[in-house]
Design a binder for these strands. Structure first.
Lengths: 314, 314
DNA sequence: GAGTCTCCATAAATTTAAATTATTCAAATT
DNA sequence: AATTTGAATAATTTAAATTTATGGAGACTC
């Protein structure tokens, strides 16, 4: 590691003298006294073993070595200015990158709207959305690869303590039927009716599937008795299957807004059952919170948060 | 003039930590204690209002802002290193420019040899030769456009005090005749013989001409009685004129070495007259002496200096 | 050319900043 | 749980830069 033979202050002084042609004027410009300028230049000359200025006449003139040094000096100081500006931009959300994590559902149906809003407000901050499983998302937040994330499932126990988990919204998992299904006419269903249905579900590894299974089980249903027509690994595929009359499914309401409006899919009401899950915001409190992340959490997320979420209260 | 929000030392520390992944290791690398490193980074973070490192686990990790700053940091430090190297090269005569002044005669016949020698020793120093009148050369040395010069005439009075003038060599101004001239056969001439000659001279403005006129006058000759066939402004032209039998001339011996060796010109001896002038080295003591200039004066010039010159004694 | 003005250098004193030692705190490893 | 390692903090020491005050040298004035 080489020693540094000069300081930025010395370079700043050098530049000022070169520009003003005088030690005194440079001192005035920099709001210091003239001896301060003299001594710093003397130090610089001693360190580099060169003469930088000819102090002959009324004005200070650069020597050859001085001109050479000045060239580098200007380049270095420009880089410094640039660095400052870049950092400032980052602070003012005029640059930088925000990395957001999400599960399949929120990533597909919720995040795009939020990110749109954010980008509208801060067009110079680039946003990266990473859609992964709850588990992987959790770990990414833990090791800093993701700034913040919204998940709908349960975190592994060890992460639960490490991360900050804030209830964010309630996501209803609606029972949806093909519009032409016989039960679509009934105003209300009962739990028991579920045994009459053929289900098209997410594959058993998915978080959403696990959540649904657990809720049904907790409400006293025997999930073994439910008939599963097929397992798919994409919500869109399931929606298509339901619309094609292949069976029923529990799907997040956020994912079927369009289809409900168009009437291509039917949402059933179950009188004695509510299938809901908590969407949670997770962040890593032991890590650096970027300005962008802070801003997203404070001003974007609340607009989409449910009334009960702590985020609302901010 | 903007304030500088960081120092080079801080950047150096930042770089070291980023490279080592640890405050402590960086401290060891830089031969300082760990608190010194911690405090400087804290200052940096405070100044820029950013967090640079995540000090979570066992190793320090850069934040986004930290990575951004590091990029600039490396560029800035590289520029600093380059600057040092450039300055060092200049000090070691591996770069830079030496500007030498000379009059017509020395510039044409003496300097090329000296510069050749210098360039052989320091091929990376570029040398510029400026041939001008004694007067203009003197002024150029005075205001720093020329590092050093060799002149054969008299400096204007005001410059005489301002510059350092060192006798350098004696330049004999030989009387030369066409080889087939009748007087070329005589072993020795006398002053009186000069009245019998037709002269081809430099124009009356030239320094060399003035010097010759003065010397002849001082030795008791009536220069009005000398027959001047023609006045030319180039030594080469005069040499050609003499060789063509058009007349005699007083020429610096250094300018006719080749012609004497070839026998195309004849050098006459005058028993009771010596026409000699002092060549002088001039420098500006109130100005910065470049390493190259110093070196030229100390090690190149003496090889061509006459025995009496103070330069010999160095 | 003597006097005045400017500008830079120098010296001593003050102020400011940075480094060190010693200690505490927290996380990670055993 | 105990030990180790790395970073933060506090107090002291050390070093460095700035200021005030002063002296000197060249340039402009009259």
């Amino acid at each position: 590691m080489p020693e540094l033979p000069f300081t930025l202050d010395q370079l700043r002084i050098l530049k000022a003298i070169a520009a003003q042609g005088s030690f005194k004027k440079a001192a005035d410009l920099l709001y210091v006294t003239q001896p301060a300028v003299s001594l710093q230049i003397q130090n610089l000359e001693k360190q580099l073993e060169i003469t930088i200025f000819d102090r002959g006449g009324r004005k200070a003139l650069l020597t050859e070595a001085g001109r050479l040094l000045l060239e580098y000096c200007e380049r270095i100081l420009n880089q410094c200015d640039e660095a400052c500006k870049a950092i400032e931009d980052l602070n003012n959300l005029k640059g930088g990158t925000l990395v957001i994590g999400a599960s399949q559902t929120t990533g597909t149906y919720l995040m795009p709207r939020m990110i749109g809003l954010f980008r509208q407000k801060y067009p110079e901050v680039s946003v990266q959305l990473q859609v992964h499983s709850t588990r992987r998302t959790g770990w990414s937040v833990a090791n800093g690869q993701i700034d913040l994330a919204i998940i709908g499932g349960q975190l592994p126990g060890d992460l639960e303590n490490l991360l900050q988990v804030i209830p964010y919204a309630t996501d209803e998992l609606a029972l949806v039927l093909p519009s032409k299904h016989q039960l679509s006419n009934k105003k209300e269903l009962l739990k028991e009716d579920l045994y009459k249905l053929n289900f098209v579900t997410l594959d058993s590894q998915s978080t959403t599937r696990k959540v649904v299974d657990k809720l049904l089980k907790d409400s006293g249903l025997d999930i073994q008795r439910l008939k599963i027509e097929m397992e798919l690994n994409s919500l869109e595929a399931i929606k298509n299957a339901v619309q094609s009359g292949l069976g029923a499914s529990f799907l997040p309401v956020v994912s079927i807004e369009r289809e409900l409006a168009a009437g291509t899919i039917h949402k059933a009401f179950i009188a004695d059952l509510e299938v809901k899950r908590e969407l949670k915001l997770i962040t890593n409190p032991s890590r650096y919170i970027s300005r962008a992340s802070e801003e997203f959490k404070k001003n974007i997320l609340p607009q989409f948060a449910s009334l009960e979420s702590p985020l609302r209260k901010i």
